[in-house]
Amino acid sequence: MASFMSLVIAGLATGAIYALIAIGFSLLWQTSQTINFAQGEFVMLPAFFVLAAINAGAPFWLAALIGLVISVIILGAMFKRLLVDPMLRHGVLPLAIATMALSIFLRESVKEFYSAEASPFPSFIPGTTIGFAGISVSLQHVGVVLVAIASVMALTALLDRTPIGRQMQACAQNPDVARILGIPVERMIMYTFLINGLLVGIASLLVSPIYLAKFSSGETLGLAAFIAAIVGGFNRIRGAIAGGFLLGIADNLAAAYVSTQYRGAVPLFLLIAVILLRPQGLFGKAEERTV
């Protein structure tokens, strides 16, 4: 039982990171019909911004801050202006393909210009293990869960309690109506991209101390978060959160009780089951579109 609980807590930590990334998927989809297949690389990249700042002599806290700011600027604002805006005019599919190209570009650029090796990454939280009621828990895992939960709470408070958040929700629900009510729809969409830039930056700071900073780490993270968003319901933020945690826990339990070799297949089994039984996702809403 104790080891089961330890696995669940480790799973929650993985799931919390998936959830942060999946929320970004969901936000971009809801406000601008962007499916960002480079989302995994967006999580991989900020770690290298931080490492570059550390190499330039910045203390870790400052480097982390620089990493977050650069993430918001490059992976938020510039991503929207330079790639999404020009491509979205041609439709959702060309944009999705362009983000796939971007993911390859980012991955190969880091490999070429930084390193092909995994780089150790510092952490704000010590990696010690603590015992509690017979359960041994990594302090880092607890920290990851707490930071992720705090981030999600801050985001939901922003969306539900502030005028800007409410305007963003209005744009997600119906941009045409939002426009006639005088809501600056374009600006609200930009805000969601900036938020996504911040979320992937936070996810990067949380995941890199555990799995190291490596050019290829975005592949698995991006896929897992994409599946989490679909399992939870792509058009719901709470779906993305639930999907993230579900996937994280299932992943860890499957590795321990089923087979480590089949660990990677678990998210895919979940994905197939959800698509067959509840295509709109656990919390999602069915959407209709004319093709």
């Binding site: 005028p163 409410r166 209005a170 629900q173 119906n174 045409d176 006639i180 009510l181 005088g182 809501i183």
Partner: peptide, 27 residues
């Protein structure tokens, strides 16, 4: 004020929230 053709509300929000949204531009 512009009231276009068709249904122009936020279907998932309550009636009251829809009304509050009408005044978003005139905060």
């Amino acid at each position: 004020v512009y009231v276009p053709q068709g249904r122009n509300i936020f279907p998932e929000m309550s009636v009251r929230h829809n009304l509050e949204f009408g005044a978003v531009a005139a905060a």
